[in-house]
Write a protein that binds this DNA or RNA. Structure first.
Length: 145
DNA sequence: GCCAACGTTGGC
DNA sequence: GCCAACGTTGGC
């Protein structure tokens, strides 16, 4: 089993929305590196840290689980369907709500924790919206809750 | 709203 | 295949 972190702008899709929906398809990812992870690496049962970006208090806000492995995301090709559905470019997974953290583990705290300095999240110029997290990093982070 | 960092696009 | 222009992300 692996661990992941996904970013979402709370104005667009928040942890509270996921809690309400119970599960959602993680669509709209339009980055090839992230696409490869969605398509090839994320497995059913994997744990996903839910991160709020581009907001007043960026940080990890909850935990979700992969409930459906990568399948074609044929929508939203600039507003239209995939011109070639047999050969999809973009993929998505389904994730289900697990729980909200008791509090937000903020980006500032993560940066301040030296043992988390290798997390992709805090690497320079990181813009990936889906990224792997090691088991050790996951445990440490959850321990800060 | 600013700006740095990065990906993508397109001319050549 | 190079590289400048442009668009997007995301912290601050």
């Amino acid at each position: 089993m692996a661990y992941w972190l996904v970013k979402s702008e709370p104005d667009v899709y928040s942890i509270d929305q996921l809690k309400k929906d119970k599960r959602t398809c993680w669509d709209g990812v339009r980055n090839y590196q992230a696409r490869n992870l969605l398509r090839d690496s994320m497995k059913k049962g994997d744990i996903v840290l839910f991160y709020h970006s581009n907001c007043a208090e960026p940080g990890v806000t909850g935990i979700a689980k992969v409930v459906r492995e990568g399948y074609p995301d044929n929508t939203n090709y600039k507003g239209k369907g995939n011109p070639d559905p047999a050969n999809p470019t973009w993929f998505m997974v389904d994730i289900a709500f697990q729980r909200k953290l008791k509090r937000v583990i903020t980006l500032a705290e993560i940066k301040a924790e030296g043992r988390l300095r290798d997390m992709q999240l805090v690497q320079r110029g990181n813009r990936l919206s889906v990224m792997p997290v090691s088991a050790a990093e996951y445990e440490l982070l959850i321990g800060m809750e």
